[in-house]
Amino acid sequence: MAFSFDRYAAIIFIVIGACFIFESRKISETAYGSNVGPDIFPMGLGILLILLSLRLLFETRGTSQDKAATGALDYKKFIIIFAAAILYALFLEKLGYVITTFVFLTIGFQVMEKGKWLKSLVIAGGFSFGIYYVFVKVLDGTLPGFPVFF
């Protein structure tokens, strides 16, 4: 049976709520000088979240599919750019800001629209060097600029 997004989301939120309730029981109960410990607020919220999620399940009962079939989504572009962004985040510290940003932007531009290589390279290069220069040289910020072995 195909569930709609809302029902999946409701179930996920019930799990999240349950986790918060379960985990908040582990927090040491009383704080000094107060009988309202740090566990009460998250526990109460967890219960509230579960109740609301149950209400959402109730509201969306019977709906098995998302009502709006919103045309073909461009998952290919999205996944490539998203994956590139994750790699960008992972390698930012190791390879330095300038190289990773340049590579990420070039990939991004080319995925959005193939061709016009020169323009892509110039904009990507200008952005990565420009930001690095302004931030590190003018504003004295810290940013890993280039790979360590340079």
Binding site: I81, A85, T101, G108, F109, S128
Partner: peptide, 11 residues
């Protein structure tokens, strides 16, 4: 514009 917005967010 779009890749640059991602890059600005990360920066």
């Amino acid at each position: 514009l779009l890749p640059i917005i991602i890059a600005i967010s990360i920066f």
